[in-house]
Design a protein around this nucleic acid. Structure first.
Lengths: 347, 347
DNA sequence: TTGAAAGCGTTACCAC
DNA sequence: GTGGTAACGCTTTCAA
């Protein structure tokens, strides 16, 4: 009596029949506004629904209502702690708002990104969050902007994380300022000669952090020779390779290596350690992001703290706060310098 | 001419009109089977769709077809590398199969888990993947099994990751065997006295690993005193706290601490290090899972390698391989001992 | 407050 | 092959 028989899930129709009311009433009692249905009817419907183990069909609701309760989230790589922390924030804020999160990973490929954005738009989510860095030479930006603009025109909300150059709501991470502050603090600690491990030359996040860092040093009259700025993959293994590359070309008078993100810094530290360098004494290292692991490596890593979970939450809040029609809104998230053992005072 | 005007997305209807064909033909040309529509009609429709920037409404397709193209994934905590690696596998395998992934996080709370399973069932996904460990005293198992059984009865496929006690398709991670192997290898290296940092006493994954480890030691006539088995949270901070607890109660003759997962092991290492213990020499540490970070901590961590991304992929493959109606199928994933610097040979 | 009925955007069956 | 049209499960007018 209770379980759905065979293949077909219970529909609202079944519930209405079981409760002896009309489809409309059943709908109102279960999903509609509070006021409209009389107490005993409502109870009868709810009881019937419970008895039959009824679950509203979300797809059908979406069609009927003309809108979903979905948040679509696009990340570069979910196994990367940067993205997984942001995702945790997006998921928790979404759940609180009764929204379901749909997720896809671009593997940092612009073509894939465009395809996936199209796939996500096809789901007609309420909110579309795009995390991950843009490339300066991204061949697809124009198309991307078109898709997203059309999506907004049709009532969806777009939120970009850290891509302020695009005309959408954005959670802004001021990488230039952050990296400059980091540089200043490192100068304070006495460091004077630096190397940088950066991502691909076209990767904007990487560029901004390099630029900010150089700005900070420049203000103190310090510069970095080109051969001491290497660019590799924006991953742990990239950092590892970058450190090796630096060591090959000497690394002689370098006191500190700035890796433009923590996973790269951690990889670099392993490469340096394996090469017999004493971290923190022979050579200092700093990163960016403050992913959880950097407290557990040795020495603990100096970095810029980005409240990543908060960033994810902010994306959802921004979407809710920004009225459609008005121009793009932004939430600025500021980073904080976290000095740890990898950069001891040296002068 | 090209862009959707105002609020309403382009529908198949619009495309049909633009192409001068019927709704049915438009549907067939765009989403239907290859054979049925003549070349020039198909081209006209496709051209019209492109011109209007048409995107099929997935929800409407789901209603009409009676099934979605969705995979629902339930994890404990997406920011935990164990889950995020599994999620990466689920996402990539799903994308390859043209499926969209929906995700939710239980925060390891059984009540939340049940609620979220209900919410996900409501989406009528094609596949529902439940990762995360079960509790021995889970008050909701019966209800959970009911929900999942009903979901399967209505045509969905369920896959559990590492919960072989439930009557569903399962990706089995043989924790008992894995932990036993680890113990054997550590005995080989000369270790004779051990402590364990475990998760909550009701957490099955934790229990299995403890049990397997004790089995392995027991076969060599070695046991562990109760006070040297502490139980804490199944997280990095739990591991940190567990190590502190062990140190308070002495840790005197202990040669090696086995933490039942890597994040706990990494936390424990930090606690030990901060307390001035020389890792690998004063005290050895081993973990379980082989999350990426364990190669970058110092010393590198001995652990059991679980191919986590592969585990996620297997879940989707299993769902596709297992015909509905037949009993639950299983895929066994075996773990491999990875000896690293945290457990040097000592005898 | 309730119920009948008209949608929502697609698919799929059934004639032509 | 193609087009008309009845579904799909639900929401939401519109009358009653």
């Amino acid at each position: 009596m209770a379980r759905p028989i065979g293949q077909s899930p219970v529909t609202l129709h079944d519930v209405a029949r079981e409760a002896g009311v009309s489809l409309a009433t059943a709908s109102r009692a279960i999903n509609g506004s509070e006021r409209k249905v009389k107490q005993d009817y409502r109870e009868r419907v709810l009881a019937a629904a419970a008895r039959l183990n009824y679950k509203p069909n979300r797809a059908a609701q979406a069609v009927a209502r003309g809108s979903t309760m979905t948040v679509a989230l696009l990340v570069g790589d979910i196994a990367d702690p940067y993205f997984s922390s942001i995702a945790a924030g997006v998921i928790s804020a979404s759940e609180e708002a009764g929204l379901v999160v749909t997720m896809a990973a671009t593997q940092r490929d612009p073509d894939r990104e465009l395809d996936l954005v199209r796939a996500m738009v096809s789901q007609r989510p309420k909110i579309l969050v795009v995390a991950g860095s843009r490339l300066t030479d991204d061949p697809n930006v124009a198309k991307l902007v078109d898709e997203l603009t059309a999506f907004e025109a049709s009532g969806g909300r777009v939120v970009m994380i850290s891509q302020p150059e695009l005309p959408f709501n954005t959670v802004v991470l001021d990488n230039v300022t952050g990296a400059r502050q980091l540089a200043e603090h490192l100068l304070d600690l006495g460091y004077r000669s630096f190397a940088i491990i950066s991502g691909a030359p076209t990767l904007m996040t990487s560029n901004e952090r390099v630029q900010g860092f150089l700005d900070g040093l420049g203000a103190a009259g310090i510069s970095i020779a080109d051969e001491n700025i290497v660019s590799t993959e924006f991953t742990r293994d990239g950092g590892y390779a970058g450190a090796q590359q630096l060591m090959e070309s000497g690394l002689d008078h370098i006191e500190l290596i700035f890796a433009v993100n923590d996973v790269m810094a951690v990889g670099a530290m392993s490469a340096l350690r394996e090469a017999g360098r004493e971290l923190g004494t022979d050579i200092a290292v700093a990163g960016y992001d403050d992913i959880p692991t950097v407290q557990d490596v040795t020495p603990t890593l100096t970095t810029m703290r980005l409240p990543l979970v908060e960033v994810g939450r902010s994306a959802i809040q921004l979407a809710h706060a920004s009225p459609p029609g008005l121009g793009p809104a932004r939430t600025e998230i500021s980073a904080a310098v976290i000095l740890r053992a990898s950069t001891p005072r040296i002068r």
